[in-house]
Amino acid sequence: MKSLTIKGSKRESVGKSATKALRNAGKVPCVVYGGDETVHFSAYETEFQNLIYTPDVFRVVLELEGGETIDCALQDIQFHPVTDQILHIDFYQLFDGTPISMTIPVRVSGNARGVKNGGVLRIINRRLRVRALPKNLPDFIDVDITNMKIGDVYTVGDVKTEDFEFLQDDKEVICQVRTSRTAIVDEADEDEDDEDEEGAEGDTEGAAEGAENTEAPAEE
């Protein structure tokens, strides 16, 4: 997982007036949970630009005044409903030996066979919840759709993973290729159907010949 450093300072007062003063100064009040004690700190809003306005997930190294550092991950963020100003951010402290649950973005790669034939790719889940040790958390979940035909679905169970586990059911659909009015028949599928039909015709002819051979001889 990518790492991002944020510089901040601890705040002693957490009252409404102190919080309002921080925001007026262009700072964001923040909290880090999950450790031996809750850490209240603030940082300038510009510190969070690369953390928030991106689909990527980061491991945050929080550098506080006095040389203290805390490894953490973004847990929750609150925006002003009108101005979109960042009002508050919650972080969760990370420990190397303790698993953590996080939402990881899905990255679709490849050009689906069914889309080439006129089908439509529909992405159902763009982010998935996983659980793993901090060092094993992926930057993204890769979904290769190259071999997907019209009617195929790609589920959570189709993703190969060793270092982390999904918190969704294996049958949860990530994406699917749906048919459309412009869709054409896949040649490979058509060939398979033709072989099946030829086999069926051969069986029918053989059965007919067998029936003819069982007819009684005509009387002389």
Rank of each mutant, 00 (worst) to 15 (best):
116 K>Y: 13
109 S>P: 01
73 A>H: 09
125 N>R: 15
108 V>K: 03
160 K>F: 05
108 V>C: 09
138 P>C: 02
133 L>W: 04
81 P>A: 01
115 V>W: 06
107 R>S: 13
90 D>Y: 12
151 G>E: 01
84 D>P: 00
64 L>D: 00
131 R>N: 15
101 S>L: 06
77 I>G: 07
166 F>G: 06
78 Q>H: 06
108 V>G: 08
156 V>N: 02
60 V>M: 14
95 F>N: 14
60 V>C: 08
108 V>W: 06
142 D>Q: 12
134 P>R: 09
148 M>P: 04
142 D>A: 11
99 P>L: 01
133 L>F: 15
74 L>Q: 08
140 F>S: 15
165 E>M: 12
64 L>Q: 02
139 D>T: 05
83 T>L: 06
95 F>L: 13
142 D>H: 03
66 G>D: 02
62 L>Y: 00
97 G>F: 12
119 G>Q: 13
121 L>H: 08
84 D>I: 00
125 N>W: 08
135 K>L: 10
143 V>Y: 12
91 F>H: 11
154 Y>L: 09
112 A>C: 05
119 G>R: 08
89 I>C: 07
72 C>E: 07
104 I>D: 00
137 L>G: 04
82 V>I: 15
99 P>G: 00
138 P>L: 03
146 T>P: 00
110 G>K: 08
103 T>Q: 08
141 I>F: 01
